[in-house]
């Protein structure tokens, strides 16, 4: 996979959102992806945090890419990412505390999210600043989109609702966003981790099906 050829921003965006989607194609960052997608709000919360970290780390890595020796680049990247994750964690603590509590360990675990280190190494360390930032944002957006879709799927199948508890992320006004699709419904399997695996498998299959149909 060579990124030495310069890509246009459009290509970068398409890559991040679809062709090289970190979750559906690269299959990176599956641990948080499967763990926190029980509902849309959880998914969005983690997704946004990931976007923040990805953009920040891509930016920083791109900035220092010419100064870090090849041999120690990974430790350096990890340190940058760790810093940004700490920032994100602190931010969430400050502004969305309840969501922070729900997501728990998965926020600090963003450090080990392969999407972030992967983009830093595969893209940001070889490209100038602006494309790196765009790449980070688009990859994060693609990741978040998959998180959100999977979250919506599992929330709908598992408890028959959509957008429950959105106030945790978007303030009290979002409390009314909740949509109840099935009354008095529960399918525990979808909410539990096995449901996440099955849902993820279905999403990947769908993606491949669409690709094939083209």
């Amino acid at each position: 996979m060579s990124t030495t050829t310069v890509k246009s921003y459009q290509e970068i965006s398409q890559d991040g959102l679809w062709h090289n989607n970190p979750a559906l194609v690269q299959l990176l960052g599956l641990c948080p992806l499967l763990a926190v997608t029980g509902s849309v709000v959880n998914a969005l919360g983690l997704g946004i945090a990931t976007i923040l970290v990805l953009v920040g780390s891509n930016l920083s890595v791109s900035l220092i890419r010419n100064f870090v020796p090849e041999q120690v680049r990974l430790p350096a990247f990890v340190m940058i990412i760790a810093s940004f994750v700490t920032c994100a964690e602190l931010l969430m603590q400050a502004f969305t505390y309840e969501l922070y509590q729900i997501l728990g360990i998965f926020i600090p675990l963003i450090v080990t999210n392969c999407v972030i280190l992967g983009r830093a190494d595969a893209f940001a360390s070889k490209n100038p600043i602006l494309p790196s930032v765009v790449d980070g944002f688009m990859m994060g957006l693609g990741f978040t989109a998959v998180l959100a879709v999977l979250g919506a799927m599992r929330e709908l199948l598992g408890q028959g609702t959509l957008f429950e508890n959105m106030q945790l992320l978007f303030g009290p006004a979002a409390e009314s966003w909740k949509i109840v699709v099935f009354e008095d419904y529960s399918f525990l399997f979808a909410i539990l981790p096995p449901g996440a695996f099955v849902g993820m498998g279905i999403l990947i299959a769908l993606k491949n099906l669409i690709e094939q149909k083209r």
């Binding site: 529960s186 399918f187 525990l188 399997f189 979808a190 539990l192 096995p194």
Partner: peptide, 8 residues
């Protein structure tokens, strides 16, 4: 097992 997990 799936049914047991989903509808205990």
């Amino acid at each position: 097992a799936l049914l047991l997990i989903a509808f205990p």
